[in-house]
Design a protein around this nucleic acid. Structure first.
Ligand SMILES: [Mn+2]
Ligand SMILES: [Mn+2]
Ligand SMILES: [Zn+2]
Ligand SMILES: [Zn+2]
Lengths: 145, 145
DNA sequence: GTGTCAAATTAGACATAATCTAATTTATTG
DNA sequence: CAATAAATTAGATTATGTCTAATTTGACAC
């Protein structure tokens, strides 16, 4: 019993498994992209991800995203002047953010050298990510034509 | 004539030198931190940075920040769930963002390896930044006490 | 200096993204 | 099942950023 990986990951993160929370995780795991909170909210209220009723209020969608980020199950990517985007933390990857359309795409992971010791002082480093900026393939094509 | 470095940088970026725009640049260059648009707006309306009247509307502050970012004179740092922060692009540096208080701090620059060719596909790379996350010195001290 | 005009500024309305509140419901444990 | 802390909810509220249309101005030509 309890073979459902989503349920297990929620419990491991100290979070109750509710239909609303389950639906957020299920949606993020089924979608390679990086949806916004608004997109997740809409999707969860459109389709059934949990077997039970997945309807969820806006506040709950935001609450759950916050809780999931705190539990380390979801990553939040801030994009200038636009709504934050989310992904289920699966394989590690870097991110490419399009200047023009704001889309967030995964870039194959590779190790990044840490700053030389002393350069961080008394700060406590948790993670280190690389952000690439420029034009996504679609916007680059549109630009050059 | 025209020895003022701010004035020269604005002209180099194809932007007129207005008191409001000058004041934004002057404030950013005098402040090592990474202020938000709201902080810049307030500061510019409090102190005199240009010799002339630096009063600026909120719209103008945002317009100028956008123009300065486009001209490559200012960098914008997006922070999850918080207002964007800005710095005058001077020496290159990486950024450390505090999980707890959202403060953005500079980290000494060092070269970062590019992704292996092919990994970016048809995307057009403009820049590449390294973001460190964790607790700033102040928040780390507060946490452990 | 004066005239010209695209660029910039402005106040305030508007839009969007995210959070808060307080009442209600529910998942989990015993 | 009962108890209860956690989660959900609708809707108000706050925070951040953008837009509009009227006005002013910086840069340049003369
Ligand atoms: Mn991703
Ligand atoms: Mn900086
Ligand atoms: Zn794009
Ligand atoms: Zn901090």
């Amino acid at each position: 019993m309890n073979t459902d990986p989503i349920k297990r990951s929620l419990e491991a993160g100290g979070l109750r498994c509710t239909p609303q929370r389950y639906a957020v995780m299920a949606f993020l795991r089924e979608h390679e992209g990086h949806p916004t909170a608004a997109e997740i909210f809409e999707a969860v209220n459109r389709r059934c991800y949990s077997g039970k009723d997945p309807r969820s209020s806006r506040a709950t969608t935001y609450n759950n995203l916050r809780d999931l980020v705190e539990a380390g199950l979801v990553r939040e990517v801030a994009v200038e002047g636009r709504a934050a985007r989310f992904d289920a933390k699966g394989l590690r990857n870097h991110h490419f953010i399009c200047d023009r359309c704001g889309k967030v795409e995964d870039v194959e992971w590779y190790d990044v050298p840490r700053p030389r010791s002393g350069s961080l002082g008394k700060r406590v480093l948790r993670e280190c990510e690389l952000i690439f900026r420029g034009l996504c393939a679609k916007c680059a094509a549109r630009r050059s034509s």
